[in-house]
């Protein structure tokens, strides 16, 4: 998959990562939407790829932002991103009333707008004086919104508001068993928020390497996708849910093994059942 190509290079500038992540995310969301307009739901797993694209982008943004020392932990940035992202996402999804094709782009733009406000507030009103703050929070809100849309698409196969707010139970339209009514969006929210902050937070330290952190972002994305794929058994057809699950498990296993290999490459030493020695003191 195209996702893995960029991870093999080191020192990719942030802007390039951002464009790659955003393009992967938007293209995958459109593929998922093509599936729904054709009336098939087995393209739902592309939502997971969209979430991974967004996470790679957000991970790079968090790295940039948190290198300034924002006074509180890295995880709070993930929470802020998804707290604002969920608001932008749901408004964007209502625009499916106009056309389903504008929803992903609207999520991106609305996320940027809401995040721009929050970033400006932090930098000017709260006087944080961090040069990248405004831009970073805008990007993070957009990332949150796209990742939530992707995870929601895995679970339900849809991105439009009507489709995620209703659920067809034996021919009767019910609301309390829908993605929104049953609160499954809360699962996407938390999965995304932790997956967004984890790669940089986990690889924090003087020996942090971009390819390892990015591989962890991919791993976190596939791991989140596994969970959403399991939940999707309640929403989409059996075959679509199995496709999502198999794709997610294979993707996760491959990225996990690669991440462990990269950690082995970067580690000082790799010991099994051996004591540490204090000789270097």
């Amino acid at each position: 998959m195209s996702v893995k190509i960029e991870a093999s290079h080191d020192g990719i500038p942030h802007n390039k990562v951002m464009v790659i992540g955003a393009v992967i995310s938007l293209v995958s969301l459109y593929i998922a939407i093509i599936g729904t307009t054709l009336g098939v739901d087995y393209l739902a797993f592309f939502g997971g790829i969209a979430a991974i694209g967004a996470l790679i982008w957000g991970n790079s943004t968090i790295k940039k932002l948190c290198s300034y020392g924002i006074g509180t932990g890295v995880p709070s940035a993930g929470m802020l991103a998804f707290g604002s992202g969920v608001i932008a996402l749901l408004f964007a999804s209502t625009l499916s009333g106009i056309s389903i094709w504008i929803v992903p782009v609207a999520a991106l733009i609305l996320g940027l707008v809401v995040g721009l406000f929050l970033g400006w507030i932090s930098n000017s009103v709260l006087n944080m004086k961090i040069p990248v703050m405004t831009r970073s929070l805008a990007e993070l809100a957009a990332v949150g919104s796209l990742a939530l849309m992707g995870l929601g698409a895995v679970a339900t196969g849809f991105v439009g508001f009507m489709d995620i707010a209703t659920f067809d139970l034996l021919g009767v339209t019910v609301y309390n068993a829908s993605y929104l009514g049953a609160g499954i969006i809360a699962v996407s929210f938390m999965l995304g928020a932790i997956a967004l902050q984890h790669p940089f937070n986990a690889c924090l330290g003087p020996g942090e390497k971009q390819d390892r952190t990015n591989m962890l972002a991919i791993e976190c994305g596939f791991l989140s996708m596994i969970v959403m794929a399991v939940i999707s058994f309640a929403f989409v057809s059996l075959i679509a849910a199995w496709i999502s699950l198999v794709v997610a498990v294979i993707g996760w296993a491959v990225s996990y093994v690669k991440y462990v290999a990269l950690s082995k490459r970067d580690a000082a030493s790799w010991l099994d059942a051996k004591p540490f020695s204090d000789s270097e003191e």
Partner: peptide
Amino acid sequence: GRTASLSKFGQPV
């Protein structure tokens, strides 16, 4: 991740 990033200080995994 954290331990590998501490390789500079000789912390083994």
